[in-house]
Simulated scan of single mutants.
Amino acid sequence: MKKLLLIVLAITATFSVNAQIVTPQPSPFSKLEQKVGLTQITLEYSRPSMRDRVIFGDLVPYGKLWRLGANANTKITFSTDVSIGGNEVKAGTYAIFATPNETSWNVVFYSDATNNGLPKVWDDSKVVAMVNTKVYPVSEKIETFTITFDDLTNSSAVLGILWENLYVGVQIDVPTDNMVLTNINDVMNGTPTSNDYYAAAVYYLQEGKDISQAKIWIDKAITMAGDKVAFWQLRQQSLIYAKAGDKKGAIAAAKKSLAAAEKAGNSDYVKMNKDSLKEWGNL
């Protein structure tokens, strides 16, 4: 019994020696993933808070390079080549730094993302893009340093930086159109399915491309779908016909989509079709 008690005490002492106090980080780590078109963008950064401090012009001086956050580098990773400020940036991971000023910032994308903060020796050859961007005031105080992806389109996003009482944004352009057109060409030269024709037609409509070609593809998609055609497919057919100037065909497709949406109990598509029919003078 005495031996067992000694073993228990020894184990307890070992746990006591090895135990560590864990506390929250003052600038917690954040990871943000965003799909822009066909490009995956991943952002990793730490988020300091104001804590009653004056940030820009004091804690973060004007005119000096800043690590853009806290702790390790703020890093951004692109799954494809992108364009930033007119500079072609290859797929990969980059550190982001900034030089804040009162009315504008210089935001720098740097090819070496392994530094713990600012590089000990700055190398201009590692600057892959530098963008001068305007400072916009915000009405509400932003307590915690925040980076966002704003104004998303198929071909671009704005990297938004917010803290204290300001916002700055850097546009990132992605090669979605080239990638999609290459993919469409490859598929159409093979054996496209109804879904392929539908996707290509809708993309052409959304991106303002050859609407006559979009009309051919949507018709093939609807014909191939047969009795399984969905109300949302008919909805896109009506929009393509309207864009092509075929109001009669647009109305006919919208009526079919409306009937199918009513049968499916989808109030959103019922409303959209009724709104279009009213716009086209048929309701």
Rank of each mutant, 00 (worst) to 15 (best):
P100K: 01
A113C: 11
Q206V: 11
S125V: 14
W105D: 01
Y110D: 05
V135W: 03
I96D: 06
G169F: 07
D123Y: 08
W163D: 02
L118R: 05
K134Q: 11
A200E: 04
A225W: 00
V131M: 07
W122E: 08
I222K: 00
V138L: 13
D150Y: 10
V158R: 07
K209L: 15
K220S: 14
A95M: 07
S155P: 02
A95R: 06
K209Y: 06
V180G: 11
F97C: 09
V170L: 07
W105E: 06
D210G: 09
K209N: 06
K215M: 10
V131P: 02
S156V: 12
I161G: 02
K215E: 04
M188W: 09
K134S: 15
A214S: 15
T103C: 05
D219F: 01
A230Q: 10
V121I: 13
D124V: 08
V131L: 09
G169E: 01
M179C: 06
V135E: 03
A157I: 09
D124A: 12
E102P: 03
T176I: 02
D219M: 08
V180L: 11
Y167T: 09
F97Q: 12
I218K: 00
Q206L: 15
E140D: 13
N154P: 01
F149Q: 06
I184P: 10
M179E: 14
N116A: 13
M130P: 00
Q171F: 01
Q171C: 02
V107R: 11
S194M: 07
I216Q: 04
W163T: 04
E102S: 12
L205Q: 07
D196N: 12
P137C: 06
G160H: 06
E140Y: 03
G226N: 11
V128C: 08
V158K: 08
D219K: 11
T223F: 14
L166P: 00
